[in-house]
Design a protein around this nucleic acid. Structure first.
Lengths: 98, 98
DNA sequence: ACTCTGGTTCGACATGTGTCAACATAGATA
DNA sequence: TATCTATGTTGACACATGTCGAACCAGAGT
């Protein structure tokens, strides 16, 4: 980030990811998935964040659309897992300080 | 982020920073300041991002309120600079993958 | 004091966003 | 097929947000 300025298109794409983490409920859901064993979590494991179940589902969908999470149905339950590459890219972008 | 889940209060504080970078115009302004020589930039140097000048000022204020930028008036011009500590903390949080 | 230039604040408007209750769907199991 | 449980979707609402033009403020230099 300190080496060169972002182009307009880069800014649009990257801002969408930051925006997805820019809500307390979403950030918490994301961190719950990320910190869960195996890097994935069932919705039933992470749905206690103080909002209703439809709201949880809504936020998980947003995180998915932003490319930060992926989901997979296994039988009755749906499991979410983080997309490590995207996460690492965001971190590296912020941390590059030279 | 992968080690433990965020508490509700942590999520509120951290989400505010991500939210500040979650707008394309703001992210671009921020990267323009961050990539400018000396780590600081005059508003006149970075005001060409496709929106009106009052809008630029509005976004710079938001970035300031989020703790990501600081501003200082020197004579006629106002200079903005990044707050390295906050930036590094965000990057480290995303990049910690163990 | 006047004026010019750089920057911020104000007021207003359209659009986006978070939230919930109600409804819908997918699998499992009887 | 009927039904129960776990998730997702829809519709509606209040509220937040991005944007602009107009008005305003702060220094510098006549």
């Amino acid at each position: 980030m300190t080496e060169r300025a972002l182009t307009a298109e880069e800014a649009v794409r990257t801002a969408a990811m930051f925006k997805a983490l820019g809500d307390p409920v979403r950030l918490r859901l994301f961190s719950l998935v990320a910190s869960h064993e195996g890097g994935e979590a069932c919705v039933c494991d992470i749905s206690d964040v103080g909002v209703s179940q439809p709201t949880v589902s809504h936020h998980l969908k947003k995180l998915k659309e932003a490319g930060l999470l992926s989901s997979e149905r296994r039988g009755t339950w749906v499991y979410y897992r983080v997309q490590p590459a995207v996460l690492a890219a965001m971190g590296q972008m912020l941390a590059s300080r030279d």
